[in-house]
């Protein structure tokens, strides 16, 4: 999967889990800062959205691909994002014919202690 230009602004890159599932990695840098020493909520949201789309793209690729259009997103912020690397992963909870439900989680040191989670719905236009 080729990430969009916006992902380069965030400096997001893809790591692959053993099963090929994408995990996104975002370093802490000046362009994602909100209040000093913390990630801006929008940068975290952007990372979650890229993670959700990467997971959905990965799932769709096994079914012949398709275009993805965002319908809505709800982001919950659990902890302040500190000045360290952030990872995010999307989980496609249901891949329907026209709509997909996707969850995403972002964490720093400990996967079990997320800094933010999100639920997104996407419209799918099958190729």
């Amino acid at each position: 999967m080729k990430l969009p230009p916006y992902a380069a602004v965030l400096k997001v890159e893809i790591e692959r889990a053993e099963d090929g599932h994408p995990i996104l990695v975002m370093p802490f840098h000046d362009d994602v800062v909100g209040r000093p020493g913390f990630l801006q909520g929008g940068a975290i949201s952007g990372l979650l959205e890229v993670a959700a789309i990467a997971a959905l793209d990965h799932a769709l690729s096994g079914e012949g691909g398709g275009r993805i259009k965002p319908i809505n997103a709800t982001v919950d912020f659990q902890r302040g994002g500190r000045d360290k690397t952030t990872r995010a992963e999307g989980l496609v909870t249901r891949l329907g014919n026209r709509v997909a439900n996707v969850e995403a989680v972002a964490w720093q040191d400990d996967r079990a202690k997320p800094i933010a989670t999100a639920r997104m719905n996407y419209l799918i236009v099958r190729d």
């Binding site: 230009p5 909520g41 929008g42 940068a43 952007g46």
Partner: peptide
């Protein structure tokens, strides 16, 4: 801005920057 594009085929802005603006 072209570097905020989320979908290169259409040139549409990514949703992240819009969330960031609305958060602010």
């Amino acid at each position: 801005s072209t570097d905020l594009i989320g979908d290169e085929a259409s040139g549409v802005l990514a949703s992240g920057p819009i969330i960031a603006m609305m958060d602010i």
